[in-house]
C-alpha cells in the first residue's frame, strides 16, 4: 500500500511538470496554431537566467520573477522576429525555425554555463524534514508548491479565455483571423501575447523544476515529449485538458512502470505514448479537444 501511494505521488509530481509544460504548448497553439518545439529549451534557458541571478545574490523568489520576465521578453522577440515574418501559415518553416531555436538555445546555454549539472536552490527549505506526510508517503514542499502554482496558473488562463475581453479576442483571432481583423482586433498583438504567455509559463516552470532534477541543458527535452503527449491527449485547444492529461500520464507511467515488470524503465515513455495512441483512435481530437464542426 505504501508503495502504491509512493508511486502515485511520484507520478503526480511528474504529472504536474508535464501538465505545466503542456499548458505552455497549448497557449502557443491556441493563439497561433503552432507547435513550439523550443518551448522546453526556452524554459530551461529561463531557469539558467534565474540561476545566474541567485549566484549574484538575488533571493530565489525574485530570481524566479526575473526568469518569468525573461520568458516574456524571449517569447515576444521570437514571435516578432522569427515567426511573424514567415506568415502564420507557413507550418513547416515555423517548425524548422523552432527546431533551429531549440538547437541554438541548448548549445548557447551550454556555452554560457558549461555542461556540468548545477544546483539550483529551492523556494522552500528542502532538508530531510521538510515534507508533509500523505498516506504514509512524503510530499516535499517544493513539489507541493509546483502543484499549487500549476492549479493557479491554469485557473488564471481559463478565466482569461472565458471571461475577459482579451480572452475573447484571442479565441476570435484563432478561430478566424480575417474576421478578427475586420472586428478591430489586432491579430499580430494577439499572436505575440500567446507566445509571451507560453514563455512566461515556461519561465515559471524552469526554476521550480530545476532543484528536483538538477539544472542541466538536457533536462527539458524528455519533459517536452511528455508535455507534447499530454497536450495531444488532452486536446490541443484545451488548457484544462492538457493539465489533466499531464497528471494522468504521470500517474499511469509511474504505476505501470512500477508494477508491470515487462516495461521496466526503458519503456516508461513508450507507455505514455501507447496510451496516447489508444485514446486518439477513439477520440481523434484528444479527451477534451473540441471537434471543429462547420457547416460547409
Amino acid at each position: 500500500m505504501d508503495l502504491l501511494v509512493a508511486r502515485l505521488i511520484d507520478g503526480l509530481n511528474n504529472g504536474v511538470i508535464y501538465g505545466f509544460l503542456a499548458l505552455a504548448l497549448v497557449c502557443v497553439y491556441r493563439s497561433t496554431k503552432h507547435l513550439n518545439l523550443a518551448q522546453g529549451e526556452m524554459a530551461m534557458f529561463c531557469a539558467f537566467i534565474a540561476y545566474a541571478a541567485t549566484q549574484a545574490g538575488v533571493p530565489v523568489v525574485f530570481a524566479i520573477v526575473i526568469a518569468i520576465a525573461a520568458g516574456v521578453i524571449m517569447g515576444g522577440v521570437v514571435e516578432r522576429v522569427l515567426v511573424r515574418p514567415l506568415g502564420h501559415d507557413a507550418d513547416y518553416s515555423i517548425l524548422l525555425v523552432t527546431i533551429g531555436l531549440f538547437l541554438a538555445l541548448n548549445a548557447t546555454a551550454g556555452i554560457i554555463w558549461g555542461g556540468e549539472p548545477l544546483a539550483f536552490p529551492t523556494v522552500f527549505s528542502s532538508g530531510a524534514e521538510d515534507y508533509i506526510g500523505v498516506l504514509g508517503s512524503r510530499v516535499r514542499y517544493q513539489q507541493l508548491l509546483l502543484a499549487v502554482l500549476l492549479a493557479a496558473v491554469l485557473a488564471a488562463i481559463l478565466a482569461l479565455f472565458k471571461y475577459t475581453k482579451l480572452g475573447l479576442a484571442m479565441r476570435t483571432a484563432t478561430s478566424n483571423p480575417e474576421s478578427a481583423a475586420l472586428l478591430g482586433i489586432r491579430v499580430n498583438r494577439i499572436n505575440a501575447l500567446g507566445w509571451m504567455m507560453a514563455a512566461a509559463v515556461g519561465g515559471l516552470l524552469g526554476p521550480l523544476v530545476a532543484p528536483g532534477t538538477t539544472l542541466t541543458t538536457y533536462m527539458m527535452f524528455t519533459f517536452l515529449i511528455y508535455a507534447a503527449a499530454a497536450a495531444t491527449l488532452g486536446g490541443f485547444d484545451s488548457p484544462g485538458g492538457a493539465v489533466l492529461a499531464g497528471l494522468i500520464i504521470g500517474v499511469l507511467e509511474s504505476l505501470i512502470g512500477g508494477y508491470v515488470s515487462f516495461v521496466g524503465s526503458d519503456l516508461k515513455l513508450a507507455v505514455a505514448l501507447v496510451l496516447l495512441l489508444i485514446v486518439l483512435m477513439v477520440r481523434p481530437s484528444g479527451l477534451f479537444g473540441s471537434r471543429r464542426v462547420e457547416r460547409v
Binding site: 507534447a228 503527449a229 495531444t232 490541443f236 519503456l267 513508450a270 505514448l273 496516447l276 486518439l280 484528444g286
Partner: peptide, 26 residues
C-alpha cells in the same frame, strides 16, 4: 492511425513512434 487523425495529433503520434524506437531497442 493517420487515417483518423489530423494535423497536430497525427504529428504527435508519429513523434511517439520515433521516440519509442530507441527504447524498444534498449
Amino acid at each position: 492511425p493517420a487515417l483518423r487523425l489530423r494535423g497536430m495529433y497525427l504529428a504527435l503520434v508519429t513523434l511517439a513512434v520515433g521516440v519509442i524506437f530507441p527504447s524498444l531497442v534498449r
